[in-house]
Design a protein around this nucleic acid. Sequence first.
DNA 1: CGCGACGTTGATTTGCCTCAACGATTGTGG
DNA 2: CCACAATCGTTGAGGCAAATCAACGTCGCG
Lengths: 195, 195
Amino acid sequence: MSYDSLIAYINEYVSLTEDEIDTLKSLTRIKNVRKRQFVVEQGEICRYENFVAQGCLRCYHLDEEGHEHVVQFAVENWWIADLQSFLTQSPANFSVDAIEPSVLIQFEYSDLQELYEKIPKLERFFRLIIQNAYIAAQQRIIGSYSKDAGKRYIEFRNRYPDIEKRVPQYMVASYLGITPEFLSKIRRRIAGQDT
Amino acid sequence: MSYDSLIAYINEYVSLTEDEIDTLKSLTRIKNVRKRQFVVEQGEICRYENFVAQGCLRCYHLDEEGHEHVVQFAVENWWIADLQSFLTQSPANFSVDAIEPSVLIQFEYSDLQELYEKIPKLERFFRLIIQNAYIAAQQRIIGSYSKDAGKRYIEFRNRYPDIEKRVPQYMVASYLGITPEFLSKIRRRIAGQDT
DNA sequence: CGCGACGTTGATTTGCCTCAACGATTGTGG
DNA sequence: CCACAATCGTTGAGGCAAATCAACGTCGCG
């Protein structure tokens, strides 16, 4: 069932006993969301850290001028939340919503603290998860400053071929930090001479 | 001495016994670096996570065209390293060097693992450190996509007034993702009408 | 003193945005 | 099941933010 992928995922980092798996299950829950449904809403408190068992979601920021800026996509085996909001239990700067109908495994804040006590290994596990998220964020910063839109698009394509097919183009544009119109022009240019 | 600020800093998150402090000292070291000296060099493996006891440093990436992109500054009580390289012990994507003569407390990778074993609390501590770094990185991504250079500069100024005075202007420009010439023009514009 | 590093200024160019219009596709209610 | 609206991608004209290039002033320092 839905927990299988999470267990397998965790086992890549730390190994869990049967008892620990039971504890884990008892302190998390499965959540189904439909397309376009909010998982986190900007301005509200982010209650859960979410593991994607199935589906596709996005995390984005709505700025003062009403423009959306996608900061992250997530498909199977990724995590998604507004970490700042979740960790500090303060209002979120980002919204998270589903691009496809999705299945999530949710960790509530207080239950996660309890999990840390009962299964200290998870402390390490989540440190590793956050490390990876941090590293990815650093890469994005560099990319956004040192490469033009065309290069960023090609890189995105190569790195997330699976994601590009699952999300509308205007969200990819938003992720790349450009307008949909301009992405369209980039695509034309690339198609004209391949790759 | 130099450890005082580190101990005080750690104690804000988790409290250490005298014994633990001794262990900590025995598994880290103090390093003095002079102005312009490398702490991490792009292409090499980042051997240490560094706590800044005194001084000012920068972390930057050198792209294929030879342009520098500053991703982070660090002054007293900040951490600086190429985390990706440090954590995976693989070649660094960034260089770190000193803008002022500085005093660092260095954590070597294998010693840090030993510290985790001897003082499990530190596992939590470093998780929190990385969380904060991650959150800051997220904010930078948003800013870089949703604000123009003038706004980013004013924000930088307000957030790090202490840092702006300690680093040359062209590095601030690099941090903001613009050319030194353009930053100069922004400054003129702002000076003309204050704020 | 003279050189090199740093900041400034102006002229020109360019990457990307805005706005507006138009197909294609999807979906929804009658 | 069709009609109409809404959503999404494309295309072109024009505009602006920021880059590039080149020249010059200033300051600290060997």
